[in-house]
Amino acid sequence: MSATAVDGVLAGTPQRVGRFRFWSTDQRWEWSDEAAAIYGYARGAQPSTELLLEHRHPDDRTLVTQVAAAMCTGEPFCARHRIIDTAGRVHHIIVVADRMLGEQGVLLGVTGYFVDVSDTLEENRQEILDGTLPELIESRAVIEQAKGVLMVVYGIKAEQAFRVLQWRSQETNIKLRALAQKLVTEILAMDGAPAAQRARFDHLLLTMHGGVVAAE
């Protein structure tokens, strides 16, 4: 991946991005003030391989060691791992690196970027929770209601009731939640003698998919 390509990938991104250079011959590092800030250091702090390894997340030690080794080979690479900054905060870091060449194509080391995607990951996680959790809770509730109806009507256990719902969902290609909602809605409107209700319920269980949107 060329430096131009890397710039294109990162252009316009809201993440914190810091640039670095690593010279293979004398194991020397340079990093931008933005890169230092990601690790929790002030402007002008000098990095080293040992310093960066000290910030490894305990669960990502092997991966970070591999990243450090890749630096020495001078081969382009991209990796994601976690670090712990000077304040003890965990950061999710993407490292994107390319070869740094001198005159006549002599390999000098690598140059690239540290991209802190921690905030983006948290925002995405929260968006997923905000968007899907209420729906999951609502879906779970109506399925539990439908199971309860089946348990009462047929005198069966919860697991058996769920299997009946699954069977009807698979047979009709209707989403489980939609069938459960239909069943609960219809049973609440049902009246009459117990025997008549049972017969109507049997019929409902076998025909309630009519008018319900099939699963995609």
Rank of each mutant, 00 (worst) to 15 (best):
W29I: 03
L176D: 01
I83F: 11
A146T: 09
L133Y: 12
V96G: 03
A214R: 09
D191H: 11
M100T: 02
K147M: 15
E216W: 02
V149D: 03
A215T: 05
T13W: 14
W29M: 03
R56I: 03
R16P: 05
G211Q: 03
H55Q: 01
G8V: 07
V64K: 01
R200G: 01
L179F: 01
Q27P: 02
V95M: 05
I38R: 08
G18V: 02
I38G: 07
A68E: 03
A141Q: 12
P58W: 15
E103T: 05
D116E: 13
M208A: 00
Q27E: 15
G210M: 08
G102T: 00
P14I: 12
Q197S: 00
H209W: 07
A180C: 07
A158C: 02
C72V: 08
L108I: 15
A146I: 12
M71L: 10
L205A: 07
D7S: 13
D116V: 09
E159G: 09
Q27C: 13
A178L: 02
Y39M: 07
Y113H: 10
A141C: 04
F201T: 01
M100G: 01
M151I: 02
P194A: 06
S2H: 12
I38Y: 10
W31S: 11
V64A: 10
D7K: 15
K147G: 03
V95N: 11
T49R: 04
I94N: 14
S24V: 14
